[in-house]
Design a protein around this nucleic acid. Sequence first.
RNA 1: GGCGGGAUGUCCGAGUGGUUAAAGGAGACGGGCUGUAAACCCGUUGGCUCUGCCUACGCAGGUUCGAAUCCUGCUCCCGCCA
Length: 396
Amino acid sequence: MESAASKSAQLTANAAEDLPAGALQAKLELAEREGRPLRVKLGLDPTAPDIHLGHTVVLTKLREFQDQGHRVVLIVGDYTARVGDPSGRSETRPVLSPEAIIANAQSYEAQAGRILDQNPERYELRYNSEWLDMPMAELLALVRTTTVAQLLEREDFSTRYKGGSPISVLELLYPLMQGYDSVAIEADVEIGGTDQTFNILLGRDIQRHYGIAEQAVLTMPILVGIDGVEKMSKTKGNEIAIESSADEMFGRTMRLPDEAMASWFELLAIAPPADGTGARDSKVALAKAIVMRFHDEAAADAAEAQFVSQFAKHELPDEIDEFSFAASDGVVHLPQALAEGFGISRSEARRLVEQGGVKIDGEAVDPAHLDVDSGLLSGSVVQIGRRRFKRFMIDR
RNA sequence: GGCGGGAUGUCCGAGUGGUUAAAGGAGACGGGCUGUAAACCCGUUGGCUCUGCCUACGCAGGUUCGAAUCCUGCUCCCGCCA
């Protein structure tokens, strides 16, 4: 049987920090001694309904715990989402309606099932409203576990405080509530991104105040988005959703800056190509591996072929959505048709035409001729830039 | 309770009566180059029935030939002192 030390080493291999040092290994030893699985906690912020690669970094780590026989406890922060987590943000997040939170959580759980083992032996899902919707007296008991000075140690709080930016009491409460989650479910280990380090560590203090064994902390590095700079997130538009199509996954991966590739290979636990492989080929390998993970090998090959034909050879994509346009007098005013077909404004359509960004069947549109014969346009492929295509069909 | 500061376009941020659809930056988008990378160059970035018109600088009203800029009221936000 594998030793706790080697299991621990395996789990911390691509992690950012294992706090306090050795705590994880101690927990693993404890589990062995007591012959029980560890309860490994992950808090979910139910604001974004779609799981993207950034989420999978932590989920994959949880899966490793499951594969070692431990039990994952997902906490849907339905109650805390009414507060807003200020992590890494300079401003307060908007609050969500209870309906939206539940819908998001369900969608999240369904998608998380693609990575996690949802066998009840190894998996548990809880909503923190279950215990956070507490009487005032209990809240006060929670609040007295922590001092303001402790909270202000958190970097973004202290930065904002020093800079004279607002910090609401509600935000200060967030780490306390998250910590109480660990009390409620008696977490042995809590996992999160490095931006959660403070919150997770504070959870230990709170557990101690409640007379519960302190959790081990394991943080994972943050995966940058396809812009190569910012944390992957849907609001920044730099994400790759695990539900997206093979072509989209492939294409979006290819837009990743070279410098970010190494971190993607590591955090997504994809074997990097042999030394000496060129940057572009490495990226292709990365893109294929990602597609393979969420689709299959055939899809990955197809996506690569599609990519090569479309972007290297400048051929049309295999599948082009149709757009039916209405034509009166047998003439179509292009800005209007483009606006309707691509969901942009007419002014924007005009600008694109002027800049030579609009092509009909591969021919750049002449800005002087914005009215085109509807019969000629019908059946043509209209393209904006490199990535947007629509087959225009006359609507009889 | 007292004092002070603020609300501008996707974001940040200039602008205190007149070529201001609003400097500059970021981001984004289009073109060139290319590996849908980076770097670099050029251009665009409120809407429209587009040599012009409409809308826009927290909300409402007012002064003025003319206001994001001045006045009044309102809403919201923030800091400091207590």
